[in-house]
Structure formats: structure tokens, C-alpha cells
Design a protein around this nucleic acid. Structure first.
Lengths: 256, 256
DNA sequence: GAGTGGTCTAGACCACGAC
DNA sequence: TCGTGGTCTAGACCACTCG
């Protein structure tokens, strides 16, 4: 494979094309080290800057990661958490695990979380709307980072109406066994229905840092509303997850 | 806001931070033109290359788009298609619209599609598995690009068991009113259940070109399996959509 | 034609990692 | 120590857009 200096396609893109092809056909497998920038520059008769840009393309596509002082490597696929609808099973709650903990354990990893904030706040506008709150109503927010084997997987903010959360463990550091939803049900609100909205986008620099994201990895933002037996919204759950660590799965009947 | 040459944070990142802040606080609204590369270089006392890298950061985050010869602009949010579960309503099919066409019309736009391929093929492995086909069984594939007002929105590949599609309009250029699903039901397979799996990732160069994606826009890959009244899989639908043009919405009851 | 972004060169200094 | 990637400069030529 050679570079065509007279081509319309920029040289760095041509080099990226060659490397991409080599990655896709297995010449460089997951975790393999690619040629160094200097080697690449020499091979194709360009400066190091141009070689770097080729790597930049691949990194932006999520194909490679660079490591300072070590080299550029083909990204290896991480374990994927399959988030299905049955993750909110009451059985699981009664077994003492929340949705996240149960799934992580199923994959043979150890779940943990770091609580960033818990307390009563004036809710963001979209939360107030989804919870159908009146002007001035407060919410209890629980902000946390969820880990699997100490790898950050998910930013998770839960909002509960303050009237519901008051006097429960939802306002404490440790919300107790079975996760937040177990506390909601103990407060007399049986969870009957969920609604989830998903969008994908590139992370903010903050999110990229907190989730330890490599370049070229999008995030999925999931907003869930949980409703009780009276169809009253009892929680808004706003989470951001690394797209390369999650897949989402839904089953539903054909509507009329 | 000033640049700190002695900071650990690279100068181009500091410039990107400043611009990002200005975009987020509304100094530069959607569609607004940012300073030119030369202006930026002069303002912050760096070379144009460094100024460019600052813009590169923002573009990778999906915040800006550059236009050759015109300038760098704040990305304006496109119309978002909300893909809900009710998009497979039989009523809609009977009204003559498929799921995509109905949603696009609802937004006041004109749906269209370009058929790339239709015919019998040996299915990819994951399709054969999902359709529970035997070795050697063929599928009829329909590959198309879906447009809204001539803007490409979605790559959509449908796979049907050849035994089902034979002799129907599914093998013709125009599959007829109500979309493919109307033909499936006419063939005696009432659609009763769907399963959708979603993942997000950065696009391949091919996908980026076909979907006319700007930099920093991920794609969502959606794989759906449709089941008939006997719980037999009758279609695998594999689609790739621009993440900035879609959100996905699901409702479900609490499982036991 | 003037200004814009797109590409590339040649060289430099730095920080990190492995031997 | 040496090779790696990370950053930056100074300057060049090109293609595109707009008046």
C-alpha cells in the first residue's frame, strides 16, 4: 500500500486508511502496538507531525489509544454491560442488590460506588417537570459514580420528591440494601412503570475525566422516570455511561 | 481570560476551554461564527497551528463545525426524531406509512428513501443466529438510506427469511404502502413482539460520509428483531443513525 | 483579491516509560 | 539513557468562499 501525493485525499488520511485496514483485517489485533510515529514518518516519507495526524484520526474513531512514552495501541474491547428491562426486578432488590450491582456481579466483577452528593436541592427544570412538581418543591438528590472492579462505569444522579424521601434512608450516606428503589417501595410507593429516554453524544471534558474515557468514545445519556401504583412519578434518574462499556436492550409488544 | 504558559494544561486546551465556556454561556450562540484561526492566534500569541488545535478539540466534542473558506461555527442542534415504541403501530401501517415515514411527517418533513440493494443473500452470522436459520438458509435483504427533507438520517438494513419473503413485494424495488412490515403481515405473520438492542460508537469513515456526519457526532446502532404470533423471528433490522438527530424512548412495566 | 480553513514541512523542547 | 508520545513554532502552499 502506498501514498499518492497527488491524490485529493490528504496524505495523513491515506496513512490512516492503511492503518485502519490493517487493524480491521487483524494485522494488528486488540492490544497490539502500532508502529511508532517516527517509524511511520520514515515509512511513508512524511514528517512526524503528519504521521501523528494519521494516529489522531484513528483515535477519534475510537480505534486506537496512545500511551505517553509507550506507543500507540489498538483498543481492546472492554466488557460490556447489557442493560435490560429486567434489571429492576423486585426479586433482585429483595436479594439486596440494586440494578447496577446485580449486573456487575453477574459478570463476575465487584460493584462499588462513590457518593458525591446527597441532600435536598431545588431541582433542575427538566426534573421538576418530569416529577410534576410545583414551584418551590424541593428534591432529594443522590449523585454517585458507579464502579465495576474500580473502573468507573456510570455517573448516576437520582432525584426524589423531598416529600417522599424525607425520613427515609434516601437522605443518608448509605441508602441500604437493595438500592434506592427498595427504600421507595418501603415508603409505600410500589414501582409499576418506567420510562427511559436515551441519547448519545460526545462527553464533556468533565465526563471524560471522571469516566476515564479514551478519545473517540461517546457517552450514552439515559434519563429514566419511575412511576408508582398511582402512576405518580417518584424518581428521575439521570445517568451518563461510557458507550463502549454498555449496550441497552428492550423488549416490547406490538402496539395497536 | 488569559493563557498561562507555565500551566500543566496545554495552551491549545486552555484556548479550547475559553471558547467552550463562551459557547456554553451563550457568548457564541448556535450558528454563530467563532473568531478565525488567525484572529485566535493573534489574540493569544500563538501560532495558527496551535489555534487550529483548539478548534480541533471543540470539533471532536461536537461543539463546532468548520466550513472551508467561511469560518468555524457553533453547531446548531438539528431536529430530533424521537423513536418510541409506538412507531410500529398497525394503524400507521394501515394508513400507508412505515415507522420512519410517519415520524418524519409528524415533524413536518418529507420522508424519502434510497434503496441500495435488494435481493437474496447468505446472511451475516449474527442475522442467521437471530433469525434461528439453519445452515444454508438464505435471507432477503433490503438495504436503504432513509432521508428527511433530503437529509440522510439513517442506514437501514432489513433481513427476512427467504422462505417468508419469496413471492412478496419484499423482493421488489418498491415494497409498497405501509412499509415492509405491512408485507410481512400480509404473508400471515402478525407482528407481536419486538426486541431492540442499542449501542453507541463513533462512525466508520463510510458511515460518516453516507450520513454526512460532522466531526464529533457518534452513531447509534440499533438491531431489532421482530417476532410473529408464534414467536418466530421474521425480521432482523440493523440500522445506524446519527446520534445528534435521534433520541430513543422506551416504556415498560416493572418486572417481577 | 482578500480572507478563510486544510495540509504539510523542518525543527525544537518536554514528559513519560522501559531497560 | 534512549525511544516514545505531547506540544509548539515559523513558514509555506493550497482550495474554498465571498464580495
Amino acid at each position: 500500500m502506498q501514498i499518492d501525493q497527488s491524490s485529493d485525499r490528504a496524505v495523513y488520511r491515506q496513512i490512516a486508511d492503511i492503518l485502519r485496514q490493517a487493524i480491521n483485517d487483524g494485522t494488528y489485533g486488540p492490544g497490539a502496538r502500532l508502529p511508532s510515529e517516527n517509524e511511520l514518518a520514515k515509512t511513508y516519507g512524511v514528517t512526524r507531525v503528519t504521521a501523528r495526524r494519521a494516529f489522531g484520526e484513528l483515535a477519534a474513531e475510537g480505534l486506537t489509544v496512545s500511551q505517553h512514552g509507550r506507543g500507540v495501541f489498538v483498543r481492546s474491547s472492554p466488557v460490556i454491560i447489557r442493560a435490560g428491562m429486567n434489571r429492576f426486578s423486585r426479586k433482585r432488590r429483595e436479594a439486596g442488590d440494586g440494578a447496577f450491582a446485580a449486573e456487575v456481579k453477574r459478570l463476575g466483577m465487584t460493584p462499588s460506588q462513590k457518593l458525591l452528593e446527597v441532600g435536598a436541592i431545588d431541582p433542575p427544570g427538566y426534573v421538576a417537570e418530569l416529577l410534576k412538581l410545583s414551584e418551590g418543591d424541593q428534591t432529594v438528590v443522590r449523585r454517585r459514580i458507579m464502579f465495576a472492579d474500580d473502573v468507573p462505569m456510570q455517573l448516576a444522579d437520582s432525584y426524589f420528591p423531598a416529600s417522599l424521601a424525607a425520613g427515609t434512608k434516601l437522605v443518608e450516606q448509605d441508602s441500604g440494601p437493595g438500592g434506592s428503589y427498595a427504600r421507595v417501595e418501603e415508603a409505600g410507593h410500589m414501582l409499576t412503570r418506567f420510562r427511559e429516554d436515551l441519547t448519545a453524544r460526545m462527553p464533556t471534558p468533565d465526563e471524560a475525566r471522571t469516566l476515564q474515557l479514551a478519545g473517540g468514545v461517546p457517552v450514552v445519556q439515559l434519563v429514566r422516570v419511575a412511576y408508582d401504583q398511582n402512576d405518580v412519578p417518584v424518581e428521575v434518574f439521570d445517568s451518563v455511561v461510557a458507550a463502549d462499556k454498555y449496550s441497552f436492550s428492550y423488549e416490547f409488544a406490538a402496539p395497536e
